[in-house]
Amino acid sequence: MTLSPSLLADARLLLPVAIGLTLGFAAGLLHFHLLRRTARAIAEGRVGLFLLQACLRFTVTGAALYLAGRWQAAALPAAALGVMAGRFVVLRPYRKSVP
């Protein structure tokens, strides 16, 4: 069986999309988990912890999206989609049910 050029092109596009999605999902999980902890730190009046967690959240998420974009253009939208999927997973237990 020979590999056609279009099949190879699809494989070259699929790998960055899969890696970008995975990278974004991991960054989204961390970002929104720390968001919950940051809200708790604000409620407890722990300003130093709040600042540290906020900086960590934005640094990790920004770095993941930056690396995905620098690696290949197709990986950036996949990483952004992964961040949103991570958001859905972390915040789903806190959703209010609508009657």
Rank of each mutant, 00 (worst) to 15 (best):
M1K: 07
M1N: 06
T2H: 11
T2I: 11
T2Q: 15
T2W: 04
L3D: 02
L3P: 00
S4R: 14
S4V: 00
P5T: 06
P5D: 15
P5F: 08
L7I: 04
L8S: 10
A9C: 04
A9R: 03
D10V: 09
L13K: 07
L13I: 06
L14S: 08
L14H: 09
L14Q: 06
L15C: 02
P16V: 00
A18M: 12
A18R: 05
I19K: 10
I19Q: 12
G20M: 04
G20N: 08
G20A: 04
G20W: 00
T22Y: 04
L23V: 11
G24F: 07
G24S: 10
F25V: 06
A26F: 14
A27C: 14
A27P: 13
G28N: 08
L29C: 08
L30R: 03
F32G: 11
F32R: 10
L35H: 08
T38W: 01
T38R: 08
I42A: 08
A43M: 05
A43F: 07
G45P: 03
G45R: 02
G45D: 07
G45E: 02
R46W: 00
R46E: 15
V47W: 07
V47D: 10
G48I: 06
F50D: 13
L52D: 09
L52A: 12
Q53C: 07
L56H: 02
R57K: 12
R57E: 10
F58Q: 00
T59F: 10
T59L: 13
T59W: 06
V60P: 03
V60A: 13
T61C: 15
L65V: 11
Y66N: 14
L67V: 09
A68S: 15
A68W: 01
G69P: 06
R70Q: 04
W71D: 10
A75S: 14
L76C: 04
P77A: 10
A78R: 02
A78E: 01
A79T: 13
A79P: 14
A79Y: 04
A80P: 02
L81E: 01
G82A: 01
V83Q: 11
M84C: 14
M84F: 14
A85E: 01
A85W: 00
A85M: 08
R87A: 15
F88G: 10
V89P: 06
V89A: 15
V90Q: 09
P93H: 02
P93Y: 02
R95F: 12
R95A: 14
R95E: 15
K96Y: 12
K96E: 11
S97D: 15
P99G: 03
